[in-house]
């Protein structure tokens, strides 16, 4: 039986994905960044590592076939499907604090992913120190050979989705990104959908 979760614009969510289950993350309206962190369900001290993941895949972007690695160098999930083709894990999540540096002090009191993560992690006994560099599904952050990095318009269309098969039991924590100061959400944050089911395919 599929578990379906509709996540409103700008809101956080968390849920358990068991070993052998697949999580589908759907960008229901297109051009919506979905900030995501995974924790080993039985030991939150082991969690997603962008650096282990980048190293394991040898690629600057998350794509079909990518291994999602933990801080202990273990496989957490594998990307088994992707209709979009571009996901980031270098640019991290937005925060009120970094927004002020990036976009000016008048953005200080706008909702941000770090607020979502602190609130959602607090439900699991974790806090700010547990926020690690995350995956940004559907966020388009090209990095040039000269090092230049920018957040470009998202390339995801309504209904685009990515699927990941869990190699261990994981807690998935999502911030449905509320950023309106750059194009990662088309300047217009929208709802998303998460579906968890047994096995691959379906």
């Amino acid at each position: 039986m599929d578990q379906i979760f509709d996540i409103p614009a700008e809101r956080p969510w968390s849920g358990i994905v068991r070993q052998g289950q697949t999580i589908r993350i759907e960008d229901s309206f297109g051009q919506q960044a979905i900030d995501t962190i995974f924790y080993a369900a039985h030991d939150f001290g082991e969690r997603y590592s962008s650096q282990e993941t980048l190293k394991a895949n040898g690629r600057a972007y998350i794509e079909t076939g990518a291994k999602v690695m933990s801080s202990e160098g273990r496989l957490m999930l594998t990307v088994t499907a992707d209709t979009s083709g571009r996901h980031d894990t270098c640019a991290g999540c937005c925060s009120c604090e970094s927004n002020t540096v990036r976009f000016g002090h008048d953005t200080r009191y706008l909702h941000a992913c770090r607020e979502n993560f602190i609130l959602e992690l607090s439900r699991h006994g974790m806090g700010k120190r547990d926020i690690v560099p995350n995956i940004n599904f559907f966020m388009n952050v090209p990095i040039s050979p000269n090092g230049a990095m920018t957040i470009d318009d998202g390339i995801s269309a309504p209904g685009d989705h990515v699927e990941l098969l869990a190699a261990m039991d994981v807690l998935c924590v999502i911030s449905n990104c509320p950023q309106i100061n750059n194009p990662c959400n088309g300047f217009d944050p929208t709802p998303i959908r998460v579906v968890i089911r047994d096995g691959i395919g379906g």
Partner: peptide
Amino acid sequence: RLNLPDTVKVQWTTELRKGRVLLSDMG
């Protein structure tokens, strides 16, 4: 603590060199 994602996106570059800064997660 050091936040490299913020460090690189705020400065629009992954190439950190003389003249660049290292940012914390608190901006």
